[in-house]
């Protein structure tokens, strides 16, 4: 059953950037978009399971640091090879300056 998890402070992530968040043996990536919204995806690239935490956020896309695969982090859609499989995405909400994710 899905539950809301307190993941980080809104100040922990610069705009157009991401951080890694680990919880219960799973790893996630939490993004701060250029317009101030927060998003969450699985942390590992669907291509070769490299963590996205060192990747580059450009507007609404995250680029994997190993092979430059690109995803739309709002929808998880794989935008550029070598990724062919979409990322899982998770709902987020902001309350009291904290970012919560539903996992």
């Amino acid at each position: 059953m899905a539950q809301w998890i307190d993941a980080c402070s809104t100040d922990d992530i610069e705009e157009e950037d991401l951080i890694r968040f680990d919880h219960a043996g799973r790893t996630f990536a939490i993004y701060h978009s250029p317009d101030g919204d927060f998003f969450c995806t699985d942390g590992l690239c669907t291509h070769e399971h490299v963590h996205l935490e060192d990747g580059l956020v450009m507007e609404y896309e995250i680029e994997c640091p190993k092979h430059n695969a690109t995803f739309d982090y709002r929808t998880g859609e794989a935008m550029r090879a070598p990724a062919c499989v979409n990322l899982n995405t998770y709902k987020t909400k902001v309350e009291g300056g904290r970012v919560w994710i539903e996992v």
Partner: peptide, 10 residues
């Protein structure tokens, strides 16, 4: 070659 170069980096 896009895929072969991907492997070269992996």
């Amino acid at each position: 070659w896009r895929w072969s170069h991907t492997r070269h980096h992996t």
